[in-house]
């Protein structure tokens, strides 16, 4: 898949199997956030294909492009993007409400996420009254609570003080253990990948340059060993961003 944004050209192929986490690191401006925005559907890819399991989200050659709403993706944005006019609780409940779940049930679910993240007492506050770290946890809760099929988490632990960070990382590890879709997580911090037993790739100027040796890296595809897939074909919910470049590399 490739996408061009100003001077930046992102060109890469990724394959993240269902139930596994891929951590992306890289310097500022390497294109990590742009990559996530493209996968989420906020930016149109200029070439290639994005696919989740059997669902083609985007295929430039065939003119397919699912709107963001239909991608069933949970995004935790680096700049958080909480809705200023809604309380923390209603921010977290927003995804469920959008899918037609009634207010009470959506709020109850939101409250339990906020409680897990140590934010129960702040549920009635609006984002303007939250600290950066508190807003960060609300943003993470909102992404996890929207019943996504896959997750894009952009620096979900930034802006947290050490105590909150430890707690949030625990919750994230537990939540992702239960989560059976693919997860892409942008982070600079090495311990995150370790705690999530995630693979790790590094982006530089729009390309993947180095890959954790634990990963099987071939044909410019990054893929992780995936034992679960054989046991359970339903779990074939991998996300793929395939670069159909000049060399006719069709990914998988």
């Amino acid at each position: 898949m490739s996408v061009v944004r100003g001077d930046l050209r992102i060109q890469l192929a990724l394959d993240v199997p269902a139930g596994s986490v891929l951590v992306i690191e890289g310097a500022n401006g390497a294109g990590k956030t742009t990559l996530l925005a493209t996968l989420a559907g906020h930016i149109a890819a200029s070439e290639g294909r994005v696919q989740l399991g059997a669902t083609v989200m985007e295929d430039v050659a065939r003119g397919v492009r699912l709107p963001t709403q239909a991608r069933r993706v949970g995004v935790c944005y680096q700049d958080r993007r909480l809705f200023p006019s809604l309380t923390a609780r209603d921010n977290v409940a927003y995804g469920a409400r959008s899918r037609g779940i009634d207010r009470k049930a959506a709020r109850d679910a939101a409250d339990s996420w906020l409680e897990r993240l140590g934010m129960a007492s702040l549920a009635a506050l609006r984002p303007a009254r939250l600290s950066a770290g508190q807003a960060q946890r609300v943003a993470l809760a909102r992404a996890l609570a929207c019943s996504p099929r896959w997750l894009l988490l952009d620096e979900p632990l930034a802006a947290l003080d050490p105590d909150a960070r430890a707690q949030t990382l625990d919750v994230l590890v537990a939540a992702l253990q239960d989560f059976d879709g693919p997860v892409l997580l942008v982070s600079h911090e090495r311990d995150v990948a370790q705690r999530l037993s995630a693979g790790c790739v590094r982006m530089e100027r729009g390309r993947l340059v180095s890959v954790d040796p634990a990963l099987d890296h071939r044909a410019r595809n990054v893929r992780m060993s995936d034992d679960r897939e054989q046991d359970d074909p339903v779990r074939d919910d991998r996300v793929r961003g395939v670069d159909e470049g000049k060399d006719g590399d069709n990914g998988l």
């Binding site: 559907g41 963001t68 995004v75 993007r81 809705f83 909102r142």
Partner: peptide, 27 residues
Amino acid sequence: VDPALEAAAASLGASRWRIMRTVTLPE
């Protein structure tokens, strides 16, 4: 209105009407 907020609402599955009603107009 910050288009990033509307994009976030879309990622949470909100329809255009819902985005307008809950994000754009309140902003």
